[in-house]
Structure formats: C-alpha cells, structure tokens
Design a protein around this nucleic acid. Structure first.
Lengths: 124, 124, 124, 124
DNA sequence: GTGGTCTAGACCACC
DNA sequence: GTGGTCTAGACCACA
C-alpha cells in the first residue's frame, strides 16, 4: 500500500479514507486481520496515536471490528462495504462531473465522450 | 484564482496546470492580458522566477504569448485552447474510469450511475 | 572544449548551440556520459543554473537524456543527431549564400569559386 | 547601417571591416562622400578617435581618400574594391568550408548540397 | 555524489 | 514599468 498525504486535511482522516478505500477496492479482504496499530503506523510513517484514531473512526463506521486479544479485523458485513463503495463512487462522480462542467462540457457531451471511450476499450 | 500546491509535483508545473486550466475553463479569456510576472508570483506566493518558468512553458505550448514591454497575453488561437481542453477532459475521464474500476464498477454500471445522476440534475 | 560567448544572445542558448555542435561534430559521442552540471558550469565559467537550463533545453530536443543519479548522457538515437546536423548545415549554407549574395556574387559564381578552392585542396 | 561589435576584437578594426564591407557590398558607392568623422563616430556610438583610426586604416588600404577641405570619399578605383571583395569572399568560403568540415561533410557533399539549394531558389 | 527545484536579488533592453 | 536573463546559494530525493 502506498501512503501519501496532502497538507490540507488532517492526517488521521486521510488514513481513514485510504484504509476504507483499501477495503472497498479489495486490497483488504472481508474478515482479514489487520496488522497491529504500531506496525501500520510505522508502515504509513505516522504516529501510532494518529493511526489509532483512524482505526477507531473506522470501527465507529463498522468498517473494522476488534476482538479483545486476537486483533483487528475487516468487517464481513458486505452491506457496510457496499455502502462505503457507493459513497466513494458518489464522490468520484460528483468530482468528475464538476470538473467536466468547469471545462464547459454538458452532461450529454460527457456521456458521449464516455461511450466513445467505451468503444475504444471494450467493457469489463 | 485559488493557488494551492501539492507536495508531489514541482510548483512550476502545478502553476502551468492551474493557469492552463484557467484558460481552458474561461477564467482567462483569449487575448486577455495577464498580470505581470511579479504580480502573479506575489499572488501565488511563489518566487518570480518560478512563475516566470511556468509562463515560459505555457508560451512554448502556445497558450500565452509575450510582447516585449506590453506584458503577456492569453493566446487567441482557439485551436490551441480547444486542444488543451480536450487533454484535460481526457485526463479527467481516464482518472475517473480508473478510480471507478478500482472500486469494482464495470463500464456499463458507470454509465448507468451517470444517467441516474443525470435524471436528478437535468442536463445543461 | 572552448567556451566563448557573444553578447547578442543569451548565454544559455549559446551553450545549447555549442553543446549541440559538439554532439553533431563528434566531440561528444552517442551514449557518452557528460560531466556533471556543476563541472560543466565551472568549465564554461557560468552559473550551474545557466548550464542546467541549457541541458534541459537539449533534453527537450532529445539530444541528451538524464538518469536520476547516474548523470547525463548523449542520446544514442542517431536520427536525432543527424537531424540536428542537417539543421546546422542548412544554417551554414543559408548564412554563406546570404553573405556571398550581399557581396554581389551570383549562385553560379559561388559554385565556381568553391570548385576552384576544391582543386587547390583536393577532396576529403 | 547597423553597428554591432563583438568583445573579442578591437573596436577600430571591427569598424574597418564593417565600412569595408559597406563599400564592397554597395552600401557606400564609389566616389561617395562620407559623413564627417565626428558624425560617423556618433552614429556608430564610438569615440571619434576610434573612428578616425579606422578611417586612416581604410585610407592606407586605398579604400577611401581624403581631400584637404572637401571631406573623405570612397575610392573610385574598382580594382581596389574588387580586391577587397575577393578577400571577403575568400574569408567566407574558408569559414564555410571549415564549419561544414567540422560537421563531417566532404567537399563533394558540400557542392551537392549547394546545388540542391540552387534548384530550390534558382540563380541570380 | 547526481540531477532537480526553489528562492532571493540583481541587471539589462525596451518604450 | 515590462519581460528576460544571470548569479549565488540553498534544499531535496535518490542510491
């Protein structure tokens, strides 16, 4: 995993975003055990407290859960994961449409451009 | 104009991007006179040399041209502007499709999501 | 290498010209490693930044390429070198014909003079 | 007339060269009266003494002559002018062949290139 | 050590 | 005043 931080947002919330993205995109599998806070903090190059706070946030959202002694695990509840995925998608779409709007493209032009791209690359 | 810089790219090339975006999105109109190098540098909070370098790159690309003593002007050649606009759009589309792909959405699902968004907001 | 500068052209572009000439005339061989920016700057008696700028221009033209930590190398692409060589030759010919024209020599007279010179020195 | 000086040669001899070139190329006609030393010096932006020395040199070469009160005149002796012209031509040819030689062109290749140029532009 | 970037401050020609 | 160039000196990532 690549850890990169921008300067305009608190580190801990960027950690939340990136780990959440890792979960919805399958880098972390449902039920998978996460490394220790200390190790994750070291890997990301942040203070353990910061990582701790990020993981608590994720726990609050139900993305991960901790078992007293065994460690921390990715949720197995696919509804939670799907919901987060939709949130990410919404955000992507919103940002994309806004940027294209700034460039002066209408919604229908955008769809046309995407369908052209479609034909070039085929479907998944 | 909002000047913000990320840490992962040279400032001068971020300046190039942002000014170019300003031109293609109509914040700077074709033929419009830009502020002086020194003023733009001060506004962006960078060294005049750095702004100068960015503007020279833009000049190489034909996005702006300079007149010895009168100042610097946005190109009037709409083909250049249109070309840059298309490049920006391409990049947006590429990034968007890549991100959505990572989230596990197929091309047809993406189109469906966009069309739903469409119905909510109407067309331009 | 002899570094000499005229006052009617920016030093960095004279550096570009001279290094390019060195490459096309074989003083720098294809693939050869150049001295470091700092060393070349010291040898030419210019500021490292000025030499840096010249080398960057040469890089844009594909005459040299840089490897992050290993240094800068002359291109191995003979087509690029040949092209630059032809440009130099064109420029020489243009300037020569123009000067001779100013002196009042017709094209055929010029050829005659060159052929006379030929007979004196033989061919290469 | 454009007066430009390089830093590697005494001004007065550059003046000699440029005026001589003006004569052989017809900018100054045979028998034409030259402006006063003072005026020529002012126009060229040099010290009158420097211009004076240049004109004396030209007088020595027979390119100009002075009449006590009437001023200084370009020679009417076409042999002198022709001789200077040939000297200029020789110098041009020498420099041209040397430069092309450095680029790796043989004498016959040079002639070929010139004849190609010929066909493009026609003869004088 | 290498290339690359950035800042600070100066000077120039042009009008 | 404008753009353009040059110098000096600093810092960074990379390996």
């Amino acid at each position: 995993m690549e850890w990169k931080f921008r300067g305009d947002l608190p580190i801990y919330s960027q950690l939340v975003e990136q780990i959440k993205l890792g979960i919805v995109s399958g880098s972390f599998l449902p039920g998978e055990r996460l490394a220790s806070v200390r190790d994750m903090a070291a890997e990301a190059g942040v203070n353990p407290n910061t990582m701790q706070r990020a993981l608590q946030e994720l726990e609050r959202d139900g993305m991960v859960y901790s078992q007293r002694t065994a460690g921390r695990f990715v949720t197995e509840d696919m509804r939670v994961i799907e919901h987060a995925k939709k949130q990410f998608a919404e955000e992507q779409i919103r940002g994309f449409l806004e940027a294209m709007g700034k460039l002066g493209y209408s919604r229908s032009e955008i769809l046309t451009l995407l369908e052209e791209k479609e034909e070039q690359n085929g479907d998944t």
